[in-house]
Design a protein around this nucleic acid. Structure first.
Length: 638
RNA sequence: GCUCAUGUAGCUCAGUCGGUAGAGCACAUCCUUGGUAAGGAUGAGGUCACCGGUUCAAAUCCGGUCAUGAGCUCCA
């Protein structure tokens, strides 16, 4: 009897009897056998010491591959669990998956872990790696496994086993004296983990991600192939912290926050100019695309929010206040009910559709304390919010043209990597199932008609309708959900919006809720972090600084500033009695995109010396030429 | 809202065993008018987040509150 295994390079290895992954690796080379962490058999990852029973495609997995790294991280989680149980026997283990860059494990324990505990756990992990314990898979009887974990006081594990699908094998991995339920596969021994890991942080997490369930303690770690990769990662994290928008916001004199206004901004002059600039850009963009801007009340009577359904579904997030005559008002968390009121004024004909209504006024949402995060998650913020009232037949074209605009806008900020998620009906929702059927079908058809790839995001729709979510990838590889388009058959019904159709019957319009940037505050935060504060000239709140070398040229510097201003380029003057390097350093630190240096020579020749942020190059050019260039770059990229 | 951590000058941070507060930068004044990321001197600046407790004595120890950070839940 011969069994043959086909390798990725096409070669075939023949054995007389079923060989283990390790045997196969050994046949290929001694070194590979040493490095083997697992094998992929017909596409499925398996433990390296298990026999491969029949002819198969076999690939040996080492730490060099992505799969190998994933295995290392998974094992790091298990080694951590073993370390924790050795040091703190009263701890129950739950689950410990890999995540981007690392892993975590959730534990249940009466006492809290301290940062010192983390160090001790990490030390013990290194010891376990040195012990080089074998990690072996065992298949247990389901009831026996439940009984075992029960006896160990591991109620959470017992619960997981009980909930496993009937036909699934209950595999237990034995690693020294530590046994853990796990699907696997695993490294052959703890020594293979190496020393490229570190425990990073401690946080709370709910059992099964449900806030009504017990709270667990989650320990996060990062794990890499070796110490060098670990160091590179830690360095990268450090760099990312440097571009935190709250830090840059302070350095660039954009905004601040303080205790008395949690979740809101104090916008400083430069910050507000930036925020206004962004708003102006999207306003003009929307005008070009046929939107009309409106302004609706900041607060409206409770009864309207009850009719719209917000009171029920969004009530916890709404701020309310009472008038002297005991009326209860809600401060708007969304514009939709207001826009419906505008649509309803006067009779609308099918000839009027689509009606596109946009608004940028501030919204107020009572976000949970722990969710707040600078500009990224605020309680007061503006949105490039708009609602399109149209017929069912127009949903397609409106969706398509919205997506065109969205792409143009993202491109203006340098975001070209965009993906789409399709979110369908959530559990808590308004409207009958048949209405949802129609809304989902309609939106699905619209995405497909523009040839957009999308992934399904089940149960994540808004309470009034399904939605598309547009996710952009920023310059440092982070994903952000900004744009959204939601189809709504419910609100026009609830708030009784109608139009007169061709056959003179009264019909309900479909309402599309849509935003490209989403929260203007949040979008700014993303742009700031993604550019590390190096904003494009058209957006920058302080695009040009005119800095003098000697006071004798003050008058010329003033002329330069005034002529820039006349050409639509805001500029400030730095006439201080300081060295030019001092001025350059200071304004560069504040991320001013262009510094125009003027000294005796420039003044005499009607020139400026232009220095761009991030470059040491120093261009000397005529004043007219410089103004022309800067004015062009200051134009909104419409 | 939940868990853990943190809160000292405008910013970044020291502050040992509990003995009444320190640096650098920034700021002010004076000197310096200089060529592309820090010129020099002098000075001012703090209810150590807030409230309470222990103590002869609290930035320091204990409790509570608030805020911030990381994560969870939620979400733009």
């Amino acid at each position: 009897m011969t069994i043959s295994y086909r390798l990725p390079d096409g070669a075939t290895l023949a054995f007389d009897a079923p060989a283990t992954g390790l045997d196969i690796a050994e046949r290929i080379g001694k070194k590979l056998a040493k490095q083997a962490l697992a094998v992929r058999v017909n596409g499925e990852l398996r433990d390296v010491y298990l026999p491969v029973p029949e002819d198969a495609e076999v690939e040996v997995i080492t730490r060099d591959s992505d799969d190998g790294l994933e295995l290392l991280r998974h094992d790091a989680a298990h080694v951590m669990a073993e370390a924790v149980q050795e040091l703190f026997p009263d701890t129950q283990v739950t689950i410990g998956p890999t995540i981007e860059n690392g892993f975590y494990y959730d534990f249940h324990r009466e006492e809290s872990f301290t940062p010192e505990d983390l160090e001790a756990i990490e030390q013990r992990m290194r010891e376990i790696v040195r012990r080089n314990e074998d990690i072996r898979r065992e298949v247990w009887d389901r009831d026996e496994a439940v009984r075992f974990f029960r006896e160990q006081g591991e109620e959470f594990k017992a619960e997981i086993i009980r909930d496993l699908p009937e036909d699934e094998e209950v595999s237990i991995y034995r690693q020294g004296d530590f046994l853990d339920l796990c699907r696997g596969p695993h490294l052959p021994s703890t020594g293979k983990l190496g020393d490229g890991f570190r425990l990073t942080k401690l946080a709370g997490a709910y059992w099964r991600g449900d806030s009504s369930q017990p709270q667990l303690q989650r320990i996060y770690g990062t794990a890499w192939r070796d110490r060098k990769e670990l160091k590179a990662y830690l360095k990268q994290v450090e760099e990312a912290e440097k571009r935190d928008h709250r830090k840059l916001g302070r350095e660039m004199e954009l905004f601040h926050q303080q205790e008395e206004a949690v979740g809101s901004m104090f916008w400083h002059p430069r910050g507000w100019r930036l925020r206004q600039r962004l708003e102006q850009y999207i306003r003009e963009k929307m005008e070009k695309h046929g939107y009309q801007e409106v302004c609706t009340p900041q607060m409206m009577d409770r009864s309207l929010w009850e009719r719209s359904g917000h009171w029920d579904k969004f009530g916890d997030d709404m701020f309310t206040l009472c008038t002297h005559d005991d009326r209860e008002l809600a401060i708007k968390p969304m514009n939709c009910p207001g826009h419906v009121q505008i649509f309803k004024q006067g009779l609308k004909s099918y000839r009027d559709l689509p009606v596109r209504i946009g608004e940028f006024t501030t919204l107020f949402r009572n976000e949970a304390h722990g969710a707040l995060h600078g500009l990224m998650r605020a309680r007061t913020f503006g949105q490039d919010d708009a609602h399109i009232f149209c017929t069912e037949e127009q949903v397609n074209e409106e969706t398509a043209s919205f997506i065109r605009m969205l792409r143009e806008v993202y491109e203006a900020f340098g975001f070209t990597d965009i993906s789409v998620k399709f979110s369908d009906r959530p559990e808590v929702r308004a409207g009958a199932d048949e209405v949802w059927d129609r809304a989902e079908a309609s939106l699905k058809q619209a995405v497909e008609s523009v040839g957009l790839d999308y992934t399904l995001n089940p149960g994540e729709g808004a309470f009034y309708g399904p939605k598309l979510e547009f996710v952009l990838r920023d310059a440092i590889g982070r994903d952000w959900q900004c744009g959204t388009l939601q189809v709504d058959f419910v609100l026009p019904e609830r708030l009784d919006a109608t139009y007169r159709a061709e056959d003179s019957s009264e019909r309900r319009p479909v309402m599309l809720h849509r935003a490209v940037l989403g929260s203007l505050e949040r979008f700014l935060g993303i742009v700031i972090e993604s550019t590390a504060g190096h904003l494009p000239l058209w957006l920058s709140p302080m695009p040009v600084m005119v800095a003098t070398i000697v006071n004798a040229v003050d008058d010329y510097a003033i002329e330069v500033r005034d002529r820039l201003a006349a050409a639509g380029v805001p500029a400030e003057l730095d006439l201080r009695n300081e060295k030019i390097s001092y001025k350059v350093r200071e304004h560069s630190g504040k991320k001013v995109p262009v510094i125009l240096v003027v000294g005796e020579r420039e003044a005499a020749e009607g020139k400026v010396a232009m220095r761009r942020l991030g470059s040491k190059e120093n261009r000397e050019l005529g004043l007219d030429e410089a103004i022309e260039e800067l004015a062009r770059q200051r134009q909104l990229p419409l």
